[in-house]
Amino acid sequence: MPVDVEARVIRNTRLSSDYNVIALAAPEIAAATAPGQFVMVKPGRGHDPLLRRPFSVFEVLRANGRVEGLTLLSKRVGVTTAMLFDAVEGDIVSCLGPLGRAFALVDPPEEAWMVAGGVGLAPFAIMTDALAARGTRTTLFYGARTGGELFYLDWFRARGVRLVLATEDGSVGERGRVTEPLERELRSARQAARVAGGLQASGNDLTVDACGPGPMLEAVARIAAARGARSQVSVVRVMGCGLGGCYSCVIPVRDGRGGRHYVRSCIGGPVFDGAELVWD
């Protein structure tokens, strides 16, 4: 069951002129959050902004063996994210959660490939910790417009995550979209597996988990399906409530009868099997 916490800002770290990581003292939410779940956040008590905004939980903060809170990765794009960018230690942010369907985590020997675009990095820090605890081997494909918008690289490296980077301007990693190295590596992994003869064609040796812009998620789902790998994608929608009350955050999902129907991404997602979504 979700709880609402008037969370104190523990610290607020600016990563660039747009991005920040804000740490909130909401241990009851942090302790209950699974990778991919989100919180609905409202800084300030007034009517601007009126509605809460959804954020994937980025990290669970632990100190001396105790959970002390959670962090959110935010990019300044509107009123709420501007307030989160400007927040200082001691400010209060209303935080409701944890909400939504989490990523299903794979166990060794299966590998987890994470694909993040921009602020879509958000679910993958908490995910990395959860996968590391299971001993699952992880790769992070991480793309952004420019190298200055790739964050936490040392954090991921320190946890043994293999990094594959791409930027649109080519300043760091490969030039272009991150789905290009993903497609190439998936193809070669499949060829290597065929040569070794050890892995099945069913694709249950590898799961691709993605979060980012819609076109990136569509590409990930298509690439994974083409190579027989399972994909899970965390979608970003405009949300009113986060609890299934308002029906604003719907996304078209295959209904199993050749048709489609709208599913509320707050309770049916935000993580969906890539194969079940209909891409417009």
């Binding site: 009517h47 601007d48 902004p49 009126l50 509605l51 405009v238 009113g240 029906y247 604003s248 719907v250």
Partner: peptide
Amino acid sequence: PERIVETPAG
């Protein structure tokens, strides 16, 4: 979608 949009105090 889009099915909702926030406006001043509403």
